[in-house]
């Protein structure tokens, strides 16, 4: 969508508890490894800021952050 700011997201793998909420909300961006049960960002890690804010807020272990790009 024109004018929608895209942001980069990252998972802190020390904090992740593998609840899978991110994978439910944004399956294109997050995927849980079924062996180690830790989420990671796959493929395109860019999300519109509003959707990124939701997934950051909904992560139970606060493991997801928006990576603010240095300009």
């Amino acid at each position: 969508m024109a004018g929608e700011e895209m942001v980069r997201v990252a998972v802190d793998q020390e904090l992740c508890i593998g609840a899978g909420v991110c994978e439910l909300l944004e399956p294109e961006v997050f995927e849980l490894d079924n062996d180690i049960v830790i989420s990671s960002v796959t493929g395109d890690e860019l999300l519109p800021r509003a959707r990124a804010d939701v997934v950051v807020d909904r992560c139970p272990s606060r493991a997801i952050a928006i990576v603010e790009e240095e300009l």
């Binding site: 020390e14 904090l15 508890i17 593998g18 609840a19 899978g20 994978e23 439910l24 180690i36 049960v37």
Partner: peptide, 20 residues
């Protein structure tokens, strides 16, 4: 609490993700 919680939770979390 973390880190014990994180370790124990990950042992079973895979079975309970929305996808699985």
């Amino acid at each position: 609490d973390a880190p014990d919680h994180t370790r124990l939770r990950r042992l079973v979390a895979g079975a309970f993700t929305p996808k699985n």
